[in-house]
């Protein structure tokens, strides 16, 4: 029997790398423009806050998106007492994990498809 689930989410803290060129589709383009960017990180990544439900659209628009904390409040709680270097280490560790997960998820084991 299929497992029907609901995805829940709040405002996520992400690292995002925008595509070199904006997509032709106006809806995708506006999704990129609507991203609430906070600061530059490194390697072209920008710290931003997005609605988790927008992440697939941002990826479709050509952006690379790595979720650091699915709930921005969690990010604040987790990093409040950290020094700058510790905060960078925290983000780097989450970034590496997100990259690993995305790599696993991108390896097709069936992927999408009618259930």
């Amino acid at each position: 029997m299929p497992n029907d689930l609901i995805a829940l989410g709040t405002s996520a803290l992400v690292l995002i790398k925008f595509p070199d060129a904006p997509p032709a589709d106006p809806a995708l383009k506006s999704a990129l423009f609507a991203v609430d960017s906070h600061a530059n990180y490194k390697d072209g990544l920008i710290i931003a806050q997005v609605d988790p439900t927008d992440i697939p659209t941002l990826r479709k628009a050509g952006a690379e998106v790595f979720v650091i904390d699915a709930n921005s409040n969690d990010y604040i709680v987790n990093t409040t007492d950290l020094s700058d270097s510790e905060r960078v280490a925290y983000i780097d560790e989450r970034l590496a994990r997100a990259k690993d997960d995305l790599l696993v998820a991108s390896v097709k084991s069936g992927g999408g498809g009618a259930a």
């Binding site: 989410g9 988790p52 904390d69 997960d101 995305l102 998820a105 069936g110």
Partner: peptide
């Protein structure tokens, strides 16, 4: 819809972007 082949036993599904299920 999702469909993952080759899953045996009790498997744990999670979303990569940290969304809750």
């Amino acid at each position: 819809n999702y469909r993952i082949e080759g899953v045996e036993g009790s498997a744990k599904l999670r979303l990569v972007d940290g969304l809750s299920l």
